[in-house]
Write a protein that binds this DNA or RNA. Sequence first.
DNA 1: CGGAGTATTGAGGCCTTTCAACTTAAGTGG
DNA 2: CCACTTAAGTTGAAAGGCCTCAATACTCCG
Lengths: 238, 238
Amino acid sequence: MHQRLIARLQAVSGLAQEELAVLNALPHTVRSLDDRESILKEGDGAFNCVVLISGFLYRRKIVGDRNQILSLHVPGDIPDLMTLYLPTMDHDLISVGQSVVGTVPHAALRAMFDRQPSLVHTFWRETLIDAAIFRHWVGNLGALDALHRVAQLFCELAVRLEFVGLLNRGSFAFPLTQADIGSACGLSTVHTNRTLQALRRRGLLEWRGEMVTLPNRGALEALADFNADYLQRSSKSA
Amino acid sequence: MHQRLIARLQAVSGLAQEELAVLNALPHTVRSLDDRESILKEGDGAFNCVVLISGFLYRRKIVGDRNQILSLHVPGDIPDLMTLYLPTMDHDLISVGQSVVGTVPHAALRAMFDRQPSLVHTFWRETLIDAAIFRHWVGNLGALDALHRVAQLFCELAVRLEFVGLLNRGSFAFPLTQADIGSACGLSTVHTNRTLQALRRRGLLEWRGEMVTLPNRGALEALADFNADYLQRSSKSA
DNA sequence: CGGAGTATTGAGGCCTTTCAACTTAAGTGG
DNA sequence: CCACTTAAGTTGAAAGGCCTCAATACTCCG
């Protein structure tokens, strides 16, 4: 069931045999979520971590008079891993579309770390990649205009979905609305709409129903000046 | 010498006696840096971590055609702690004004973790707080206007400096330029200047030479709608 | 005193927002 | 199966915040 998580860890960190075994033995309960159902809210104290199995989640916070989406999450992600050491949520964790999550008690994770200490590094690194994504978005939101922000968003999603085998010839299921994209990119809904039209006009994005296609990823990544290094363990040395 | 780091850890995580002893035994070399001298550059592989002893550092990246400051660092911070598991830098690390840093080999940190495994959690948590700050700034940059962004910046700095005993009756040394603040907040230099004037006009900020004073922190925090919970281990439960 | 970097000011322009109306898509009930 | 309802997407136009350009005033330092 943790296949997506394991695919992620395999792609991003690499896993040894023993580690795989221990990971597979992680106790967990499975739960389905409806569209816009929230898992955790700002201020909640967490005693479990959530592994996204299928669907999408996002983290969001009310900032000023807006709803800001802080991050999007794809299957294999553990969006609340940090609650292991910072148990009080400073934002909400919400499902977009129908999704399925596995819930793993903090205690089970700690027990796993005792049994297989090398996994501490693997999971620590997971939180570091999560941080790298936020850092990247600090740069995006601070320095890029609407077109480039949205392009960055889709480039990043494509790579992350690819890691876990959910990208098929440039296409993927995508249950978000344009308003969601706007609040992730710090844009109004209206301007998000116009920005998406610009991407469509350039032949870089197709979006029908809940299916998004990136017909020309190379061109999209060129437009966004996208580099995926921050999404994985730096493997390739100079 | 690690006094500031220890003050931070004490304020943010709490430390046991044995942990203190082990921390104090950390081998390190001390080094002085000039204004705008860089410690690490994007693409570099790191084998050490840097503890800021005095002065300021920032992390920055070129995004599009801009120089974006990703984060500011005060004494006690370890701005490149994440290189322990993600050794390739995805941004630069630079001194602002004269500063002093301690350099600790990764190997020494790992050895310390072996000797005192509880410190793994302490340092992991440090990286999680670093991440929480980035997350907070994703919200700030995505949702706030210039005045509120800059107000947030000074509120945050005040708290972080306070943790390590570098805030004296609302005043602190501050070697950054207005242009720096602009590139941290995603604003042009000109508009940053006007925004700072607005804060001064409201009696919320004084800035003479390299000294900043926040004459009315309560009012500043009210304006920014600032809540410092993200900067420390969530201690206060409901 | 001169020079360089920093801060400040004015003005025009652009990107993005807001407001408001309208269209399309999807789902419900009679 | 179609009218009705609601959410999501689209469009136009005006307003606003922030940017850029460009010139001027400081401030510090050799």
